[in-house]
Design a protein around this nucleic acid. Sequence first.
DNA 1: GTCTATATTCGGATAGAC
DNA 2: GTCTATCCGAATATAGAC
Lengths: 179, 179
Amino acid sequence: MVRIRTRDEILRVAGELFTRYGFKGTSLHDIAAEVGCSKATLLYHFAHKDAILLALVEPARQSLIDLVARLAGVDDKGIRVAAIEGFIDLVLRYRREVALIYDVTPQFLQEPRFAAMRELTEALRAGFAGRSADPADHIAAEVLLGGIAAVVIDDKRDEVELRPALVAVARRALIPGKD
Amino acid sequence: MVRIRTRDEILRVAGELFTRYGFKGTSLHDIAAEVGCSKATLLYHFAHKDAILLALVEPARQSLIDLVARLAGVDDKGIRVAAIEGFIDLVLRYRREVALIYDVTPQFLQEPRFAAMRELTEALRAGFAGRSADPADHIAAEVLLGGIAAVVIDDKRDEVELRPALVAVARRALIPGKD
DNA sequence: GTCTATATTCGGATAGAC
DNA sequence: GTCTATCCGAATATAGAC
């Protein structure tokens, strides 16, 4: 039972170090030292360094897939509110993972498993824009998508304080006549 | 006259490569090969790799200092519009430099010359929030600041199309009753 | 000012014993 | 499953000739 615990411990430590020093700023040596094992042990549990990060962000990626699938079933009238609240809930739940993904972008967008991420964020963007074809709505959606992500990464406030403020600013910016 | 041209050429090439492959993704070898000189020549003109990037973003940094100084003289009534338009004009003018700064953040925020950048963006943030003390206004300002930066970095549209859309979404989001 | 050659450090990854 | 030892490549930076 020590076996499985080592793997979990690697993920825990790597998550902390990647968050604090960035992915490139954290070496296998750093992780091994903190875990109290050798680099070889790291690479017994994970094929390579990238695989550690992939494992860390996998739950967030799955949640994004679920959200996009759910939005596909929402009609045009409710799409903006559903996309805004769904996205904000998602990034607040996975703040650390969002920070990690932004840290390694765009390098990881070439990873096969992350190539599909483009389509996912594009679907989300369309939801923010209320499925409008107007470029101005498209741009506004991008501003909010990027801005909300930036805030959950940098801001130290907790989600209880952030959530209503984020929802409010997104609604003002994206839904006409709602302020 | 070849002397000064080599330095300029290094900056030109480094700007391209940093933009395309990122700062860490570009080695001195890469730059030297593209310029057609040796790594040693690079380090004759610049003390180290970081100095090349600092030189590239210096004009943008100066413009930000100027903008913040200008905003200090604007009264509360006009501060939000002045901050919004000033910031958007700035980042549209220095799109490449903004992308570079975001690429190397937060590592470079520890650089002495860039430590002051925190105060600068904080002043800008206060302007976006209309100098309000309400945390919700603070958060909304952060969303717009980060979102606008994200768009000028990623979006391929030209500034003629981006500028009015960015100003419009920022005004809707930040200035009550103006949509 | 520019070069070649090299020092040095560091990082990811592998081999093979236990 | 975990270790020690080691390899290999990459990258920044320096030394010294021209």
